[in-house]
Design a protein around this nucleic acid. Sequence first.
DNA 1: TAGATTGTACAGTTTTTTCTGTATGTACTG
DNA 2: CAGTACATACAGAAAAAACTGTACAATCTA
Lengths: 175, 175
Amino acid sequence: MEDEKLENARERVIDSISKNMDIYSVTPSVGRLYGAMFFEKEPMTLDEMKDKLQMSKTSMSTGVRTLLDLNMIEKVWRKGERKDLYEVKSDWYQTFTDFFCIHWRKGIEMNRDACKESITELMELLEDDIPHEKRITAQEDLDRMSYALGYYEWLNKVVDLFESREIFDVIDKVE
Amino acid sequence: MEDEKLENARERVIDSISKNMDIYSVTPSVGRLYGAMFFEKEPMTLDEMKDKLQMSKTSMSTGVRTLLDLNMIEKVWRKGERKDLYEVKSDWYQTFTDFFCIHWRKGIEMNRDACKESITELMELLEDDIPHEKRITAQEDLDRMSYALGYYEWLNKVVDLFESREIFDVIDKVE
DNA sequence: TAGATTGTACAGTTTTTTCTGTATGTACTG
DNA sequence: CAGTACATACAGAAAAAACTGTACAATCTA
């Protein structure tokens, strides 16, 4: 009776987390795994996960690796315990900023490099004596890429804001 | 000759954009479509896209819809033109904040509601006379959910920061 | 109104991703 | 050292997603 109510309350939240974990580019199964771990008092073993979620141990293994890569869970060491133990990282603010930073830095860097390289090429091209029409196109592309570069610079600063934790000066954590 | 250089410069950037569009949860094909439109001076029709990308018109149609949903491109009206025309939105800062806000609000709202509902249930449960052990569990779950709620509140404020454009007071746009 | 033209719904195919069971390497235990 | 317990690599099966071609509804043209 009380069990059921407790279970329902948990299940609702786990379900919601699972459904929304796609914002972290993660499959619902992995989301469910995270949700399950979130409510577990003790760190979990792969076998416990597999029993809980009724899935293969292999899936638990890969799911755990995914969550580790996302810095959402961590490995716990406990003496005399042979199995690996995992629990969710307790600081969700940190988890968010980690994800945000990794996610966007990745996208920024590569695009910025590509833009820089192409900008150089186009500038060289513009020094040559080329048909007027090509010159126009080159100049337009150059403008576009320069705009992109400025945007990436801004975005980088936004990421810095989170990475440096200054964001918490702007928006206080909620206790 | 110049054509080739121009093409190379573009292709490099389009390629990079395409590869990195997964940060917008978008397939490389759609990323390539976006990249192509980015460099196109004039708004494009579906047929032009299909010729450019050598893909089916259906794919262009769904791709365009995806990009429209993301507020990354917009429909352009031009008199005497029967075909639909599309071009990339020019304000990338706006595009970013739109995406950021939609993306995170979605995740927040549902989880927050789930937490609220479950919190209410658990509080009711705690008013009853229940076994000590259950009481402990209920209280622990309650704490976890309250923490989550606080975090979501914070995240909401972060989204507000972007939506209200105050972020540009914190981090200036780069010209 | 008949005849084109255009965008998309839909069904089927291909490709990609997720999931599982077995097999294997590693590390602990006695 | 043999024996056990564990996590994961790998290959194949199942499921999901992306892509295509056809069909059709809506809109324009004459």
